[in-house]
Design a protein around this nucleic acid. Sequence first.
DNA 1: ACCTGCCTCCACCGATCGGTTGATGCAGGC
DNA 2: GCCTGCATCAACCGATCGGTGGAGGCAGGT
Lengths: 206, 206
Amino acid sequence: MIRLLIADDHPIVRDGLSGMFAADPGFEVVGEAGDGAEAIRLAEALQPDVILMDLQMPGVNGLAAISQLAERGVRSRVLVLTTYDTDGYVVPAIEAGATGYLLKDAPRDELLRAVRAAADGQSVLAPSVANTLMNHVRTPPAADLLSPRELEVLQLVAAGNTNREAARHLFISEATVKTHLLNIYAKLDVSDRAAAVAEGFKRKLL
Amino acid sequence: MIRLLIADDHPIVRDGLSGMFAADPGFEVVGEAGDGAEAIRLAEALQPDVILMDLQMPGVNGLAAISQLAERGVRSRVLVLTTYDTDGYVVPAIEAGATGYLLKDAPRDELLRAVRAAADGQSVLAPSVANTLMNHVRTPPAADLLSPRELEVLQLVAAGNTNREAARHLFISEATVKTHLLNIYAKLDVSDRAAAVAEGFKRKLL
DNA sequence: ACCTGCCTCCACCGATCGGTTGATGCAGGC
DNA sequence: GCCTGCATCAACCGATCGGTGGAGGCAGGT
């Protein structure tokens, strides 16, 4: 018997989900919340196995609610169930601790399977959500903004080498290393080696 | 009609998959490869819609094959189909360009659905693989190795500030900034600001 | 043939940084 | 009450860095 909490600001959606799960003997809807704050209160009080959470809610939104649940040590699994494939929310929701991410257009049986999987700690992602997540992991084009040589220099600098040491590693003069660095600064729009390293990481060059 | 290429070093597995897809009129197995090199050759020659790729293969392994296919501009979707939920390969495979990742214990109909989805460009992940991927994007504990103040200093340094500028931002003296930096160097086991920024990124502190 | 981008090198300067030593005050834990 | 960790400040030194203004060679593309 899986104990469920439903958090959605639309009563109609809550009723629909509630009825759907009530019809299946494997589930019990133990509570319903209309906003994030209520969801947190009820989750702490009821300790459900799974929380179906909409992201768009008034006041404390779903994302914030997920973060707070994690902080407060609530062990319920959170399954995000949202209307739109709002790309921008997928990664934050997962970072915040969501166990799964489905869209509301999912067929009934898929939703039931997903909740069972979530209760079991397994991850369920809608295909388009999986896409988003995978694109997030895939390294972007990583522009060949820096020349190969400049990249080598930047790597050595990031490893803590002084210009002189980097020069020795590359069998060139210290002056050349400095020239490369100045070019790197210009290309990355920074003004010192530390910021260049930071930009290098941000742009996934390192 | 979806055109398939099967790449697996076990003939038995190839036969099994081949027979399975041959039985369905929606698929056509246009080729089979026993190693990565052959998979690449056949993929370029046949331009299949989907490639079912095992990761463990002699010579050029599946991971390397996926990378090379992407480099050579082959437009086929690659669906990784491997025996074990080898965690370490999930993220690299996706970074290399895999469209989906399934385990060989997947039921027959799920495999068929997955191939159709892949042909359509949609992502299909086995639940345990989805788990792995999600854990990868979740920010690790991010050890509170650095004190809050030290972290602020490091962030300012990473943004390209000089010690003096950082001091002004924090309303403290330059000497204090230097002290913080020295403590940061010791904690991160580096010897200059550039390497500290690099370590900060590697340890996900920035 | 020309231009552009890349890689290489030089010299000089002031500004900044890294290293050291030492000090104070204030929390929290034993 | 003592110790540890954190945050704050000071003065000093040599080493390093960033900025400037060059210069030449060598490849690839127009």
